[in-house]
Nucleic acid binder design. Structure first.
Lengths: 340, 340
DNA sequence: ATGAAAGCGCTAACAG
DNA sequence: CTGTTAGCGCTTTCAT
């Protein structure tokens, strides 16, 4: 295990001063081409990599951003994280990852750590779309909230347009000729469940319609989806479509409907939410769903952060549009189609 | 947005020299308690956080490790990552995350980036358990491979004991009285599929038994699980248990068996692999599975890295044991039981 | 075109 | 007990 070479080692090997070596390596100043090459060769030979910490003492920048997940890293934070990593990587920035584990103490510890490492900015993300307390007041670096949002309306937050997504779901069901729509979703204390239910109701009202029954709030799981169908069938309500708050619920609904002898989509059109491949593909038939475009959201958040770092912040709450992805649970024989 | 305060600012505000301020803040040297408090108070007032980069110029350490995923971050790398983050966090270390995206160029770029940032060590992980080319030769910092392994047997790799896991699965089926066991698994070109199939076969042979049919290689999906049951039923082979290479396959198998009128577990005992909650919980009945303990694996890898950083490397390949998790797909009416 | 020297923020000797 | 000084690795004037 070799030691790290310093620029002094390189200079010595090339027979020049450190100042010259620095210029040669960074393409500054005016040097003889021959000298430049000699230094470059020495650096290569020693596997020299400039010490970023020392370097940032001058530039004041670290080309690093911190990413804090408030709760545990999971299915929702990953795509956000990847999208952000993508956009930041293009800007030659690295990402520090910090897993908050729903622990405010841990979170504050990480904020301090990131600040001491002089990150150029921070992205805060999490599993729920609920607004949360700002991660700190008057921080010396810009912060962007992605997926979750900050309770301070002056902070920059990028959130999925869940209401818009729910409206798209309803519009699609209407477009394929369904009017007797039921809604099965997650726990009422989840912001997402409430927002989506409200938006669906509202969109139906615009066409003079309403849900065939009040929204069924429960859990986000397949098990709940199956139970909910039981409840729906036990009531005498007729329905020709079900809009579900998650793909897992939809999958459960689908299985239960089939077990009860109802065909999807002929008798009942079915649409989920999240566009989670594991569920949409395994569902019989494949499931139409609403995609949150989390990767795009993460990318967008990162771009706003980069802009803020460069002096052009985008304060406020930014809604990132959802996408409808049509599959056979709403339209027979369709090949998969993406609509904007 | 305030600027970062320097220790000079703190010293000035407290009316002492920077040297004294440094000692006060780090608890070194001998200072009057009053002075120490005065400096601390000044630091607090200015929200001073020592510049980690400048600090590491002296210590030579950054208290940072880099984590590179060879392929994209996903369901398998997350728990590894979290386990590692856990163990490293306890050692006051931060994690740099780099997403390799299966691109060797990208990967090498990240290795350089991490080295220039003077990480104290690196963890390399990925989605497949296959051995991969070392990430670099003769690097100046220790490297541990987690989940995946390095092709160089001298490198430190921590991998799940998949063969042991497959043996546990078979032993459990034998323990609940099944002897006519089928095996449905992923693509044959996947190392995991081959290893698990071979180990299952071998374990049966130790009891003078064999699989009722050659392993059915296909995909890792539910769809393939359902298809495979069709194949199995079309042949005239009798079977009283199915060991599946993944939980998704098992879930598909379960659905198809039920559709064919076979009861799980009465007619056919069913066991999966991965212990992925989404599948094991939604399966009817809940699915017995083999848990790779990826979080423990990540933790273990991180501990080895910490040890290596402190001068005690653990070269070679280390197998991390799998755990059997019993649910109702193999045992009726059981509450969930964990076996070692 | 090149070298010498100052300084980024911090710590650690060494004086006083 | 406290201040001064040197130096970590690098960049950037300013001389030469």
């Amino acid at each position: 295990m070799e030691r790290h070479a310093t620029i002094a080692d390189v200079a010595a090997l090339a027979g020049v001063s450190v100042g010259t070596a620095s210029k040669a390596l960074n393409g500054r100043g005016s040097l003889r081409e021959e000298t430049r090459m000699r230094v470059r060769e020495a650096a290569r030979q020693l596997s020299f990599e400039a010490n970023a910490g020392a370097r940032s003492l001058h530039s004041g920048r670290t080309y690093t951003v911190g990413m804090i997940t408030t709760d545990t890293i999971g299915r929702f934070s990953i795509p956000v994280l990847m999208g952000a990593e993508d956009a930041l990587g293009a800007g030659e920035m690295s990402v520090f990852l910090c897993d908050g584990r729903d622990d405010p103490i841990r979170e504050q510890y990480y904020v301090k750590t990131l600040l001491s490492r002089r990150v150029d900015g921070m992205i805060v993300t999490g599993r729920r779309t609920e607004a949360r307390a700002p991660i700190g007041a008057n921080l010396p670096v810009p912060v962007v909230y992605a997926f979750i949002s900050s309770a301070d309306p002056g902070d920059c937050s990028v959130v999925p347009d869940e209401a818009g997504g729910a409206r798209k779901a309803v519009e699609h069901l209407l477009a394929v000729g369904r009017t007797r729509i039921a809604h099965i979703t997650g726990p009422e204390h989840h912001n997402s469940a409430r927002v989506r239910a409200a938006a669906a109701t509202e969109r139906l009202a615009e066409d003079g319609l309403s849900l065939v029954a009040p929204p069924l709030f429960g859990g986000w799981s397949e098990v709940w989806g199956r139970q909910a169908v039981g409840i729906l069938l036990a009531g005498r309500t007729e329905f020709d479509a079900v809009f579900c708050g998650s793909d897992q619920i939809a999958r459960g609904v689908c299985d239960a409907l089939r077990a009860a002898g109802r065909r999807v989509p002929q008798d009942v059109a079915l649409i989920g939410f999240d566009n989670w491949d594991v569920m949409t593909e395994a569902c019989q038939p494949p499931l139409t769903s609403i995609d949150l475009d989390l990767e795009g959201l993460g990318r967008s958040a990162a771009q706003m952060l980069l802009a803020a770092i460069n002096g052009s912040p985008s304060p406020g709450r930014h809604a990132h549009p959802c996408r409808l992805v049509v599959r056979e649970s709403t339209v027979r024989e369709s090949t998969t189609v993406l609509l904007p």
